[in-house]
Simulated assay, not measured.
Amino acid sequence: MVFALLSLLFSGAIFGFFYAWVSSTMWGLDAADPQVAIAAMQAMNASVRNAVFAPAFFGTPLVLLVTALASRRASGAAALAFAAAAVVYTLGGLILTLAVNVPMNEALAQVTIPQDRAEAAAIWADYSPRWQVWNQVRTVASGLALLLAGWGTWRLGRDSRG
């Protein structure tokens, strides 16, 4: 089913996006000069609002929900898996991001990067660990959504044959 494949694609895209921040981006910024880290994070946060990112971020729960509805007759278990994936990502990815990470990013965007390295280090030390904790939560949630979409796709194929 096309919708199941789209669900996998969208879920995989957003999981990969969050995972990249966990596995490399934030570690790299933490290793950089804090003034550079603040400037880089400000630039990345400003650039992420774009037409390439928006479909995966906002569209994933919609695609999962449409897939759940479309697969109801073929497989109740698959429909349940896609619906659960939609709920998990909506709460743990989309809403969490809008409620926690975005406000943190907007606050950081207002920061004038201090010339004093120690002052910049204090700002970064206040921002990065908290931001990373919440990013790890949304990474786990989007990974679980991907797993559920994969399981739903498998069940859909299995149940449709029977």
Rank of each mutant, 00 (worst) to 15 (best):
L62P: 15
P61Y: 02
L98F: 12
T112V: 15
R73F: 02
T97H: 09
L94D: 09
Q110H: 08
L62M: 14
F57C: 03
L69P: 00
L62N: 10
V111F: 02
F82W: 09
A77S: 11
G92Y: 08
G93H: 02
T90W: 09
F57N: 01
M104A: 14
A54P: 10
R72G: 03
L91M: 11
P61C: 05
P61W: 00
V48Q: 11
E106N: 14
D116N: 14
V100P: 05
T97P: 11
A54L: 14
A54I: 14
E106V: 13
T90Q: 10
P61E: 00
L94R: 01
L96Y: 06
E106K: 13
P61S: 02
R49T: 13
F58R: 02
R49M: 11
V63Y: 01
L108I: 09
A54W: 10
F58I: 07
M104W: 10
A83G: 15
A109G: 12
F58L: 15
T67H: 05
V66G: 05
L96M: 08
R49D: 12
R49I: 14
I113T: 15
D116E: 15
V100I: 15
V102M: 04
T112N: 13
Q110C: 02
A107F: 09
A121V: 08
R49C: 06
